[in-house]
């Protein structure tokens, strides 16, 4: 589906698109391919859905969004898709995922993230969400983030042993890997 050059292109893009008049040309020079090929490959990777979005990646914290909540619900499996799609439509919701329950200690299967300017605002938004999506009857929990221990440094490996250093390791920046999104 994707070749080595696509991979290299994605990696090159992790440094950020250069802020110059012809940025794709500059990336092409790094990879020794024509500007037009950079553009056409990126178009294709977007169409394939491998690139989920291409554009400005904002720094929420710096822009004043200091409260970050992961909200989890235990909803019936038969309703989760419908609820998940409904929840996703609120513009303060950043992500919405289904994940497996882990027994009694962790009964939740629906996750969404809300980034807000402060806790109060996030709690208000959560109330709106619960009311609008009919979630009041479902078990839930809200987990605000506290300290951040690590934000970047994920690596995809090509070797067989994950614990050892691999010469062919390809370094990815935080957002490529799966973005802050996944948390």
């Amino acid at each position: 589906m994707i070749d080595e050059l696509d991979r290299q292109l994605i990696i090159a893009l992790q440094q950020g698109l250069p802020i110059v008049s012809r940025p794709y040309k500059e990336i092409g020079l790094q990879l020794d391919i024509p500007e037009q090929e950079v553009v056409s490959r990126l178009c294709r990777l977007k169409q394939l859905g491998l690139i989920k979005r291409l554009g400005v990646i904002v720094n929420h914290r710096q822009l004043g969004y200091k409260a970050n909540a992961m909200v989890v619900f235990n909803v019936p499996d038969s309703l989760i898709k419908q609820i998940g799609e409904h929840v996703s439509q609120f513009n303060f919701v950043n992500l919405c995922y289904k994940r497996p329950r882990c027994g009694e200690q962790w009964p939740y299967n629906l996750y969404c993230m809300i980034h807000g300017k402060n806790k109060q605002k996030v709690l208000q938004q959560l109330d709106t969400l619960i009311e609008s999506c009919g979630l009041v009857k479902f078990e839930r929990d809200i987990l605000f983030s506290r300290q951040c221990f690590k934000q970047r440094g994920a690596i995809y490996k090509t070797g067989s042993n994950v614990s050892k250093c691999d010469r062919n390791a390809i370094r990815f920046d935080k957002e490529l890997s799966v973005e802050k999104s996944i948390l």
Binding site: L17, I51, V58, Q62, D173
Partner: peptide
């Protein structure tokens, strides 16, 4: 630092 970068977000589990 309002913009982390202009770049691509890769879909989870695609790479």
């Amino acid at each position: 630092q309002f913009v982390t970068r202009i770049g691509a977000v890769i879909a989870p589990n695609k790479m």
